[in-house]
Nucleic acid binder design. Sequence first.
DNA 1: TCCTTAGTTCAAAAGTTATTGAACAATTGG
DNA 2: CCAATTGTTCAATAACTTTTGAACTAAGGA
Lengths: 118, 118
Amino acid sequence: MTLPHPTADQISLPIVLAVLGDPTRLAIVRYLASKEGVPLNCSKFLDLASKTNLSYHLAKLREAGVTRSEAVGTSRLITLRRDDLDRRFPGLLDSVIAAAGEDKALPMVGTADSEIDA
Amino acid sequence: MTLPHPTADQISLPIVLAVLGDPTRLAIVRYLASKEGVPLNCSKFLDLASKTNLSYHLAKLREAGVTRSEAVGTSRLITLRRDDLDRRFPGLLDSVIAAAGEDKALPMVGTADSEIDA
DNA sequence: TCCTTAGTTCAAAAGTTATTGAACAATTGG
DNA sequence: CCAATTGTTCAATAACTTTTGAACTAAGGA
């Protein structure tokens, strides 16, 4: 672990909720949850936002304690902090992810808007 | 019901999360949940914020579909939309409220800071 | 070494949200 | 009718957040 992460007990509920209250970040978390166990790098999310903007959103998720980012070579391997989140806020992540799955308005990783509009 | 409320299926997950991601609003929801069934008026929340600011936060909660405000005389009776929220986002409200209950940093209705600091 | 890939940082601009006070309505009680 | 109570609206401001592009670092491969 290279970048600054809060410890499990530093994770704050309002901050987590605010961070998840952004459609781009919610889409990232939803995708991470769907690939749980598989560490993903930032490039997976490039259809959600620009590289710079992704860097910003991924930092927000990391600083809130929602994700863990590990530097490996020039990559960042990003994982959901499910263990810590479940311990701090039992049931929260699952209900958010389930609800996000029902939300047709959320952006999706791997679903180019251009293909839909075309 | 007098003021504009979204219908249950208009309630949006990111908006609900963003709205709950504010400590003042989270404290309001936490208190509403603790008095569930009892409609409360705005004055109950005056130790959280000024009257004007409360009006703003209560409007946000209402517009997000988290609360229902009914005009009765010069009062607004405010209730949690638990039924609609549970239907749309099963488990979400309960896990948020449970987590908020553990959060010592959240402002509290009926606990004047002045008394604590004194 | 040079080039590419992966991602960060910085500063600026744009947009949004929160907070305030003064002025306003609407209802209720005297 | 008058005054008090309850809460809203409005405009201003302050404070954040998001987005952008250009410049940067760091690792890895040819």
